[in-house]
Design a protein around this nucleic acid. Sequence first.
DNA 1: CAAAAAGTGTAATTGGTGTTACATCGGCTT
DNA 2: AAGCCGATGTAACACCAATTACACTTTTTG
Lengths: 220, 220
Amino acid sequence: MTAMKHSSPAQPGRRKAEAGSRAELRRAAFLEAAREVFLEQGYEAANMSEIVRRAGGSLATLYAQFGDKEGIFLAMLEARMAEFTEALEVELKAHTPIAVGLTRIGEQYARKLVQPQSLELYRLIVGLARKFPDIARRFLDRGPNALRAALAAYLEDRQAAGEIEAGDFEQLASMFLDMVRSGIQTRALLDSTIQPTEADVSANVERAVSIFLNGVAARR
Amino acid sequence: MTAMKHSSPAQPGRRKAEAGSRAELRRAAFLEAAREVFLEQGYEAANMSEIVRRAGGSLATLYAQFGDKEGIFLAMLEARMAEFTEALEVELKAHTPIAVGLTRIGEQYARKLVQPQSLELYRLIVGLARKFPDIARRFLDRGPNALRAALAAYLEDRQAAGEIEAGDFEQLASMFLDMVRSGIQTRALLDSTIQPTEADVSANVERAVSIFLNGVAARR
DNA sequence: CAAAAAGTGTAATTGGTGTTACATCGGCTT
DNA sequence: AAGCCGATGTAACACCAATTACACTTTTTG
């Protein structure tokens, strides 16, 4: 991460970064600052001058590059979402035994979700789903839906291997992921003093796997 | 400093105590309009004049009754949350067989959650969790946490009856409710063109009950 | 019935913020 | 070295909404 130098205000003369194209540096700095400001304050409360204050550069340049407030917001979301979903490219192709595979994907997913930045991003998108429906929609497709489809394919493979019973694999995948994610995420979303530990996540996943495979009914 | 009179029954002036008084009618109309406007447009985008436009009355009266924008927003949320959670007072005291009990509570919960108004309320609260942490916290306690505790007690009763195995009942309750709620709610939250039908909800609950009790592992 | 309290309609005040204009500066190409 | 073109800093513009002031009417109460 490039260290953010800042300029002394109203000083003509001595300031310039040394590496990379100037425009690109500016753009990256703007996006980084926009991420901070929007995630911290929400869309409406964020103001453009604050972004410039943190990024350096000038308001005019910001507008020249992104058009308007909505423009930089969308650009920032796009970058953020890409960064988020790329890490979800889980390799479930391997014919891993079901218990191991579920645990692995569950932990990876849950650990990602409870990071403060992920929670803030989720808050933003949910809160603005009405104002920016296509953004919310894209998030849904690239995030939860994509992961669900991947897990469904894996489950189908496991069913073929005789490890689980047949069923609607998309629905099954959704159920499992919801058990892994929802409780812990909801609590963290609504009570920011809660910061789940790795152990919390692991215990949660372990229990979810157990229920998903065996249920809780008394054995006879 | 304006003397702020709130709805507390005891007042020095000792007026407007009766229900149906003019002040109470005004107040109810304001809250109703505020609900519409805030749920439709979000907190920041909503404007006070619009509330008055829909409720009738005057801006001055609105301010006299609620102090400021935050005041009427919180008052409206309070009323709304009360209305929402009161319907969740599910009677699970009865020693209903586990499959029936789970289905009943699951359907009631899920059906409530996918109503457009519930979704909008949830959006609002999640989006503003950072700005109004105590509101989000109260929602968490009165909503999800309360229901979870109730279900946990029911599960404990069922365990005592030998229907299910022992375990961390709060955790189990959370898992079940998450399966019932999360998938369907998340999709509706992020894609407003989705409007789950009764049949969707029922199918989802049925599957959740099945997994929760028996799991998906192949029988041997 | 009359005075006081509360409500009403309108408009002014105030503060903020998205957006643009403009004069200037500095690096990069030729 | 000269000059172009984008970047910069600043301030202005335009608009909007929260909040309040005020003069007047209606309701409540003693």
